[in-house]
């Protein structure tokens, strides 16, 4: 058993690599350093949780990993490409092709139906309307919301909205899924459902980075990275 697990791990290639990443903000003339030299690697197909107290820089780190923000210094590679040197339009392509986001506050467009929200990443890929619709419907089916696809976000419960957001994240089949406290705005039961879904996606081969401050949720990951004051304090490898 354990020997197969080891060969599995050695077969996995590094997908994300951060090296000595700093992030500074200018706050009223004063410089605030939120990330202080973070270096880490995440392997293809891995399920990593990032935990730490509030304000420790978890979201900042995730935004960096998801190419929503760029490091002040340090370098970052995805799949061997150096992201930290890319132009805005290239970053947009990386987000579009490689990354799916699940945010704590869902971030759905209120004027669009569930289906249209899920289609959005595919729209920016330039897919045809028909293929887009099929793929988006498939994603909604996977999160069990196919019959609600014409509802607006305001007509859905919080758990349903988060499932729409998950469908949007996986509609384009990106290799990397990033979730920033995805259960933070949900009650325990719907939170569990969402976690079930994330496990399913992991089994299907997605690389998952999950941010949480809940140790129980973190314990479900393969590896837990602890962050304190913008630095990695230690890493735990969990026994499956």
């Amino acid at each position: 058993m354990s020997s197969t697990a080891i060969t599995l791990v050695t077969q996995r290639k590094p997908l994300l690599k951060l090296e000595d990443v700093f992030k500074c903000y200018a706050m009223g003339g004063e410089e605030v350093t939120t990330l202080q030299g973070v270096s880490l690697q995440i392997l293809q197909g891995e399920f990593v949780a990032i935990v730490g107290p509030s304000g420790s820089g978890k979201s900042t780190l995730m935004n960096m990993i998801g190419c929503l923000d760029v490091p002040t210094s340090g370098s970052y590679w995805i799949d061997g490409q150096e992201v930290s040197r890319m132009k805005d339009s290239q970053l947009a392509e990386i987000r579009n092709q490689k990354i799916g986001f699940i945010f704590q506050s869902f971030h759905l467009l209120s004027a669009l139906s569930a289906l249209e929200n899920v289609e959005l990443p595919l729209v920016y890929r330039g897919m045809s309307a028909k293929a887009r619709k099929e793929q988006a419907q498939h994603a909604l089916r996977e999160v069990g919301l196919e019959e609600r696809m014409h509802h607006r976000p305001s007509q859905l419960s919080g758990g349903q909205q988060q499932r729409v957001a998950i469908a949007r994240a996986l509609a384009g089949q990106p290799p990397i899924l990033l979730a920033d406290e995805p259960t933070g705005a949900l009650d325990t039961k719907t939170g569990l459902e969402v976690m079930q879904m994330i496990h399913t996606l992991h089994r299907k081969g997605h690389t998952i980075v999950l941010i949480t401050h809940d140790p129980q949720i973190a314990a479900q990951a393969e590896r837990v990275i602890h962050i304190v004051d913008g630095q990695i304090s230690h890493t735990e490898v969990m026994q499956a």
Partner: peptide
Amino acid sequence: TREIGIRKSVGAKKRD
């Protein structure tokens, strides 16, 4: 602006 942020997060470019 939030809408623009959401669109960009799923891959919209500035020109889109």
